[in-house]
Amino acid sequence: MKMIDLADVSKSFVLHNQGSAVIPVMAGAALNVRPGECVALVGNSGAGKSTLMRMIYGNYLCDAGRIVVGGLDVAQAEPREILRMRREVLGYVSQFLRVVPRVPTLDVVAEPVLAAGGAHEVAEARARALLARLNVPERLWSLSPTTFSGGEQQRVNIARGFAHAFPAMLLDEPTASLDATSRAVVLELISEAKARGAAIVGIFHDAAAREAVCDREIDVSAFAPGLAA
């Protein structure tokens, strides 16, 4: 049983306004993750870790291959199927929080639960619990996170990412710019998600964090286009 299953995935960027330059970035990428497993993507900066993650999320198109998440082939799916997958199946904790101005922190965190069909009270209770656990002071909850510090924004981002119990998750540097206490909480959240059966793909520059929660490592530089040919 694989929750996330990639095979023969390739991708190149075509820059139409710069002499139609074709930049191949990935070829023959393969990856599979079982429920309850956490797989780390490793490789130097620029090796394509984030690119691969974005392709799994449907944020980047892939040129060939299959990217199956919870039974849906993201490479072939209609936009509305990908949207449903993002609401219900696959969560993504990006490095940056992107929110509508003016929306209070509590609502930002509760939103994924509502989007997945959760009741209002459940969503709010979950949001409160996560914000408290991540040490976001309660006096900030009614404010928009747009003016928060980097670390505070990242903790709001994590809370939002873990609010709904997704069966699959993508984590892009979840422990970056966090103090030791918050970092420990994030690692606990990841372990808890694994324990309930979530399949996780993560990028961690923090080697100790990677050791603590990841079961396997996949070196993305093996999918560099020159090598696979």
């Binding site: 075509v14 139409h16 944020n59 198109l61 949207l83």
Partner: peptide
Amino acid sequence: TGLTDQVLDDPQHGYTQL
């Protein structure tokens, strides 16, 4: 055409890229 974030982050057509 496509998902909003996909079209904005990985535009395929020259005009969209511009």
